[in-house]
Design a protein around this nucleic acid. Structure first.
Length: 195
DNA sequence: TGAATGATGCGCT
DNA sequence: GCGCATCATTCAT
């Protein structure tokens, strides 16, 4: 058994109402044992997408090949391709059968920043991860990692007992429908918030 | 500092 | 074809 300094989040963490999971994710660490080496980052901005009644959710029009992971068990990575060149990383929430997920929008680099710089040439520090597309590029995440179980050691979330002093809340970025749902949560102190 | 726009490919109508 | 849970660049103020 590997010695763990910090606690890995269990499936029970994700198997809850999405609006409880989303703010809880702030301050947690995303750890990815990538082929290039270990990467980690502190989560500072997320958005919730919940079920078939949420018009901005990919699952609003039912089950498709693309969004199938969201209908599956919680604690799984949902990664999709968008705008012809970017990927976005989500964490599936709620019991199996309920399509919901939390989009990871921004984080602060912790371990493996040199690897992130290789993947995103010309970027440094917070500019490496301050947006969902850039985050996936700097972590080297693609469709290949879609469906990864976050309970395994390949990629997971870790509780390093960080407390977020001020949590902000707002409408979600880049969505045209469902603006009344203020389901974006972010660390007001962080300098790594997306633009 | 903010608005407009092009890059780019895939899934859905 | 159209629209997209984006980003970097350009142009205007």
């Amino acid at each position: 058994m590997p010695v763990r300094k910090f606690k890995k989040l269990t499936r029970a963490f994700y198997n809850r109402p999405t609006l409880e999971v989303a703010p809880d994710l702030l301050g947690k660490y995303l750890v990815y044992n990538s082929p290039r080496g270990k990467l980690s980052a502190k989560i500072v901005e997320v958005e919730a997408y919940i079920g078939q009644d949420d018009p901005a959710c990919h699952a609003a029009r039912g089950l498709t090949k693309r969004n199938a992971v969201m209908f599956g068990p919680p604690g799984v990575a949902y990664i999709y391709f968008v705008y012809g060149m970017y990927y976005c990383l989500n964490f599936v929430t709620e019991p199996e059968g309920i399509p919901a997920a939390v989009l990871l929008r921004a984080a602060e680099p912790a371990e493996g920043e040199d690897i992130m710089r290789q993947l995103s040439p010309g970027k440094n520090g917070c500019d490496l991860l301050n947006g969902p597309g850039k985050l996936c590029r700097s972590f080297g995440l693609t469709r290949d990692q879609n469906g990864l179980d976050l309970i395994d050691d390949y990629m997971y979330l870790e509780d390093r007992a960080v407390v977020i002093a001020e949590i902000g809340q707002s409408s979600r970025v880049g969505v045209k429908v469902g603006k009344d749902r203020r389901w974006r949560f972010y660390d007001r102190i962080s300098k790594a918030i997306s633009k």
